[in-house]
Computed example of a mutant assay.
Amino acid sequence: MIQAFHDLTAELLAVLEDMTNAEREDKIRKITELIDRRDEVLAQIKPPFTAVEQQLGRRTMLLNQQVDSLLMLQKQEIQRDIQEINKKKKSSNKYTNPYESLSIDGMFYDKRN
């Protein structure tokens, strides 16, 4: 089980290191699938562990740290893209309806009869 978890972690790391914007949605789908499979395998890992399994576990933890940092970078990139889209949307709305944000706080009365 630890070997399967290690292999999935290594595969996930390879996918994360090969991120390109052109294939981003497919990569995100693949990342999600690998994370789900890792969770299933992780639930099946139970002690006691042999010395070989402990060594493999340590290497897997190092890989997992790299995975975590790359996932954080991807999250930041996606958040930046969302902010950029929101700015464009706001700018587009101001262009299509420039008087939307004006506040009317006074009135004019014509007292001529």
Rank of each mutant, 00 (worst) to 15 (best):
E53T: 04
M72Y: 02
Q83I: 05
K27F: 09
Y99D: 08
G106D: 13
E77N: 04
Y109A: 08
K30R: 07
S103E: 11
L70M: 10
P98Q: 04
A10Q: 14
N97K: 08
E77Y: 11
Q66H: 07
K75F: 15
K87W: 11
M107I: 15
K75L: 13
R24N: 01
L42N: 08
I85Q: 05
D39N: 15
L102K: 09
M19T: 09
K94V: 00
K111D: 07
E100D: 09
K94H: 05
E53M: 02
M61S: 07
T20A: 08
F5M: 15
R38E: 00
Q76Y: 00
T32P: 03
M1V: 10
T20K: 09
M107F: 15
K75D: 02
A4L: 13
Y109S: 06
R112E: 09
D7E: 08
A10E: 12
A22Q: 06
T96H: 13
V67Y: 04
K27W: 05
S92Y: 08
S103I: 14
S69Y: 06
N64Y: 08
T96P: 03
K111E: 08
E100M: 04
A22H: 02
N113P: 11
K90A: 03
Q65T: 13
I31V: 12
P48E: 01
Q65H: 08
S92W: 02
Q3L: 13
E100G: 03
K89P: 02
I85C: 04
I78N: 05
A14N: 03
R38H: 01
I45V: 15
L42G: 02
I85G: 03
Q3D: 13
D18H: 03
R80H: 10
L13Y: 12
I31H: 02
D36N: 14
I82S: 01
P98G: 05
T9K: 05
L73R: 07
F5C: 08
Q83H: 07
K111L: 13
Y95W: 12
K89C: 02
M19Q: 10
F5P: 01
K89Q: 14
I82C: 00
A43S: 06
Q74M: 12
T32L: 14
M61A: 13
N93P: 00
L16Q: 00
K88N: 11
P98W: 06
R112M: 06
M1D: 04
L56K: 14
A51L: 11
P47M: 04
S91Q: 05
A10S: 10
D105N: 15
M107Q: 14
T50E: 01
N21Y: 05
N97T: 09
L71C: 12
L62K: 11
D26Q: 08
Y99M: 08
Q83N: 13
T50Y: 06
Q54A: 01
V52S: 04
A10I: 14
L62D: 14
M72D: 03
K87V: 11
L70I: 09
R24V: 14
L13C: 06
